[in-house]
Design a protein around this nucleic acid. Structure first.
Lengths: 192, 192
DNA sequence: TCCATTTCTTAATACACCTTAAGATTACTG
DNA sequence: CAGTAATCTTAAGGTGTATTAAGAAATGGA
C-alpha cells in the first residue's frame, strides 16, 4: 500500500469520500521522504503544512534558553505531527520536527487545505475533529504531568505507547516525560 | 452596559455582525447569575454550553484520586471558561467550573450554537479562532510547567495576570502553578 | 570487523519542593 | 462587633528528582 492509500484509508476511518473526492484529496498532498535525523520543520520558520506520517517515526521538540531539548510529541505511521501552534497562528514555530527513522510524510499546504475545504467539505470536518482531539490529548498530558509522579507517568506512557517505546531512544522518552535519562534509568531498574 | 452588550462587543473585536445578526446572536445566549462558590458545571456531567463571563470570576478545576483540587484555569470578564474537553467530545467533564465571586455568565447550548453557525457564519469563524487560541494557550502552559521552576512560573503568572492575582486566593494560585500554598508563601517572601 | 559515536547505567551529592503542624491574619456572618 | 471560618505564614524535617562524573553497552560507519 503506497503512502496516499494510507492517507485515504486513514481519512476514511472518520469521513466518507466519493471516488472523485478521493482523487481531489490525493492531488492536494505532496509526498516527502526524510532520512533518519533529517529535520522537516525548524523552529523559527512558520509551519505551513499539515503533516501525516505514512511510514516511519518523527518527534516534535523545542529548545529552551539553555539549548536543552524537550520532546513534545512522538509520532508513527498514521499520526499527524506538527507544531500546531505555528500552523494555526502563522507565527514562527517554537518546535522542531525531526525524523527518528527513514520516514515518508504526506503534507498539505494551508492554502491548499483551505481550498480543499471548499471542494470536499467532509475534509473540513475531519480536521475540525483532529484539532479537537489534539486539544484533548494536550489537556490530558498537562493534567497528567502536573498531578502524577514520574514513575506513574512512565508506566502510563509504557502501557499507552508500547510500540513507540521500542522505537525511540530512552533519553528522548525521559525528555518527553520531563525527567533526566539518569532518573528514568533508575526508575526502570526499580520497577523491574 | 448589560451582559449581552458585553458579549456583542467581545464578538465584534474579532468578527463583523450586521444589526440583524446581532439580534439573532443575542437571542441564542441565555444569562445565568451565580453566587460566590456556586458551581456551574460539575465533573461527571457533560458540558453542553460555551460560557462567556460578562461579570465576575470563575475557576475551572479538577479533583484527583485523593480528592485534591487542581486549578486548571481562571477567568474574569471577557473570558470563556469551560471544560472544553467535555464540550467538544460530549464526554463527562473532568473539571468543575465554579464562581469565585458573584458572576454573570452568558451561555449557549451546543445545539443552538450549531444552528447559529448556519444562520451567522461569522460566528463559526469566531469559535474556530477561539478553539485555536485555547490550544495555543494550553500548549504554552504545558511547555512552561515542564521546563520552568515554580519561581519562574509564578513571576510569569504575576506579570501576565496581575488583575487575577488580586482577586483570587493565593492557595488557588498555588494550585494553578502546581505547588503547595506553603511553598508559594515562601517564594513570595523570598522575592520581595 | 573494528573504531567512534551514541545510548544507557551507576552512584554520590545537592536542591527544589512537599508534608506536617501550628500559629497569625484576614474575611465573613450572625 | 464578636466569633468563626477562611486564608496565609513559619519552620522542621522528608522525598523526588537533578547534577555530575565515570564507565559500560549498544549501534553504526568505514
Amino acid at each position: 500500500m503506497d503512502a496516499k492509500d494510507k492517507l485515504l484509508s486513514h481519512l476514511k476511518e472518520t469521513i466518507k469520500l466519493t471516488h472523485e473526492e478521493e482523487s481531489i484529496v490525493c492531488d492536494s498532498y505532496s509526498e516527502i521522504h526524510l532520512k533518519k535525523k533529517e529535520v522537516l520543520l525548524f523552529a523559527g520558520e512558520v509551519s505551513n503544512h499539515m503533516r501525516f506520517i505514512a511510514k516511519g517515526c518523527l518527534r516534535a521538540y523545542y529548545m529552551d534558553e539553555e539549548a536543552k531539548e524537550h520532546v513534545v510529541q512522538f509520532g508513527i505511521e498514521g499520526w499527524w505531527v506538527n507544531d500546531l501552534y505555528s500552523y494555526l497562528t502563522c507565527t514562527p514555530a517554537k518546535q522542531f520536527v525531526q525524523a527518528l527513522e527513514q520516514t515518508t510524510v504526506l503534507q498539505i499546504h494551508r492554502d491548499t487545505l483551505n481550498e480543499l475545504y471548499q471542494k470536499v467539505p467532509a475534509v473540513e470536518r475531519f480536521y475540525r475533529l483532529k484539532f479537537e482531539k489534539a486539544y484533548v490529548a494536550l489537556q490530558d498530558r498537562t493534567i497528567n504531568s502536573m498531578s502524577k509522579s514520574a514513575e506513574e507517568r512512565y508506566l502510563e506512557f509504557r502501557s499507552k505507547y508500547r510500540s513507540i517505546e521500542q522505537r525511540v531512544p530512552q533519553y528522548m522518552i525521559a525528555s518527553y516525560l520531563g525527567i533526566t535519562p539518569e532518573f528514568l534509568s533508575a526508575l526502570r531498574k526499580k520497577i523491574k
